[in-house]
Design a protein around this nucleic acid. Structure first.
Length: 462
DNA sequence: CTAGGGTTAATC
DNA sequence: GATTAACCCTAG
């Protein structure tokens, strides 16, 4: 399949409310451009989104933000204020969490201060990677460190709802970042089609202004042809995508916010016609080789969504049971009182519209993402991204498999708090229910896997 | 997802 | 080098 067509599909999928494992499968079957920073950023943003939908704010989130900042730096994108705020809030939470877990034993807190504020953040300053280092972050560092020896400051820190602060900041950043990165190529195509149908009645050739694409979709345009003059860019996009691609983009467009005011125009050039042909062929190749999984995935999502809406309307009390069974994890959005609506729960299932691309689907079983990240999930196949290391701090470009071949996770000793929690958890949940234990005590077993829990128990009972 | 064997790295 | 804890791999 043509790498650009694959990328369009991947970008589109990343904005769909698709269950994470399904998402991984869908993305895995598509080829990948190793140098596609925009797509990588979309994956990382989705990773954060998935994390916060599970209520998880960890040092992994911190690292993801750093990676995004690296890529933004590479692309000359200025760090957003909301990103600095989010980074600061997450750093605070990751540190204070250790204090809250054990307010009378500062060892974990001290370790976290050293690890996060001395090594991670101070190292960024030393390396002159100051994109995320704000004055507020420096001031906060003083407070966090003062809490080590000043009881009043410590008590003040302990009263803060750092988890909620971090979640809200992350949500604000995600909204900003999503706006910055702009809609996917297929969304633009779909909007164009709709605009054309609205204006001309029958969807004749659409005129797209290169100005708009220059602003938001530079890389998409480059995908067509780097030889094409940027101001003379003419594509009959509908033809390139074929009916399936066009319909797909059309569907996605239904729920896309109409906020953007793009102007479109099309001008024909021989180069573009050549590319048109190439795209047609690659689309036909795709259709011949694989059954498009998207319609099924979307249909399934809609079915589950309708089913959930029915259930919740009929019996709101049962909702919690459903959550426990993992059929639908409640959105953290509600927990942090950020804009959300239960409209979907009350509407008639027969008229359920497709969920917004930007709103997390309650049917997405995000809790199943092991190792807590879409990022890690997406790394599993050999054709996953191999992005170059941008600056001093290494952002591993290797897939998980490759990482395992070459290295191991850094050994992290089990803290006494972790051991104690594990003992109590085994008493409570029973030996062998490692997944349940991990889910229940995710805060304590921050960077542990179910296998780690199992191995630790084995060691403790030897 | 879990269990169990294997490997690696830290410590003595 | 032996021991051990932490981590990895894989069959079922």
């Amino acid at each position: 399949m043509d790498i650009d067509v694959a990328r369009w599909i991947q970008e589109f999928l990343l904005q769909q409310p698709i269950e994470d494992r399904t998402m991984k499968t869908l993305l895995d079957i598509l080829p990948y451009d190793n140098d596609d920073y925009r797509l990588m950023k979309r994956i990382l943003l989705r990773s954060i989104s998935s994390e916060i939908s599970k209520g998880s704010v960890s040092e992994k989130t911190l690292e993801t933000l750093e990676i995004i900042e690296e890529y933004d730096y590479q692309r000359g994108i200025v760090v957003l204020d909301s990103m600095r705020e989010a980074y600061c809030a997450v750093a605070v939470h990751c540190t204070v969490m250790c204090l809250k877990e054990n307010p009378y034993d500062f060892r974990n807190y001290f370790d976290a201060v050293i690890r996060i504020w001395r090594y991670r953040i101070s190292d960024m300053e030393i390396c002159e990677r100051v994109g995320l280092v704000s004055e507020r972050l420096k001031d906060t560092r003083d407070v966090i460190e003062e809490a080590l020896w000043n009881v009043d400051v410590r008590n003040d820190v302990l009263t803060r709802d750092t988890w909620n602060d971090a979640l809200i900041s992350l949500k604000v950043y995600l909204a900003d970042a999503t706006e910055e990165i702009g809609p996917s190529f297929l969304e633009i195509v779909a909007k164009t089609e709709i605009a054309a149908k609205t204006m001309n009645g029958k969807g004749k050739e659409v005129h797209i202004s290169a100005k708009n694409l220059q602003a938001d979709q530079t890389e998409e345009r480059e995908a067509f042809s780097s030889d094409v003059p940027r101001e003379n860019f003419d594509v009959n996009i509908g033809d390139h995508l074929g009916h399936k691609g066009r319909d797909m983009a059309m569907d996605s467009c239904m729920e896309i916010p109409r906020a953007t005011n793009h102007e479109y125009a099309i001008i024909a050039t021989p180069e573009v016609r050549k590319v048109q042909e190439a795209l047609k062929l690659s689309t036909l190749d795709l259709q011949a080789v694989v059954k498009d999984p998207l319609p099924d995935a979307l249909h399934l999502a809609a079915t589950i969504s309708a089913s959930m809406a029915r259930e919740e309307t009929n019996n709101s009390v049962e909702n919690q049971n459903v959550v426990d069974k993992g059929a639908c994890v409640p959105s953290v959005d509600e927990g942090v009182k950020v804009v959300d609506t239960d409209e979907a729960n009350t509407r008639n299932p027969s008229t359920v519209s497709r969920p917004s691309l930007m709103v997390r689907n309650c049917t997405a079983r995000t809790y199943e993402w092991d190792n807590d990240s879409i990022e890690s999930s997406y790394e599993g196949s050999p054709n996953r991204p191999h992005l170059p290391t941008p600056r001093k701090r290494v952002v591993s470009p290797l897939s998980k498999q490759e990482i395992r071949k070459n290295s191991r996770r850094k050994i992290k000793k089990w803290s006494s708090a972790e051991e104690q929690t594990l003992r109590e958890a085994v008493k409570e949940c029973g030996r062998g229910n490692w997944k349940l234990i991990l889910d229940r005590y995710r805060e304590t077993f921050e960077e542990r896997t179910v296998v780690d829990l199992k191995d630790k128990w084995r060691n403790m009972t030897r």
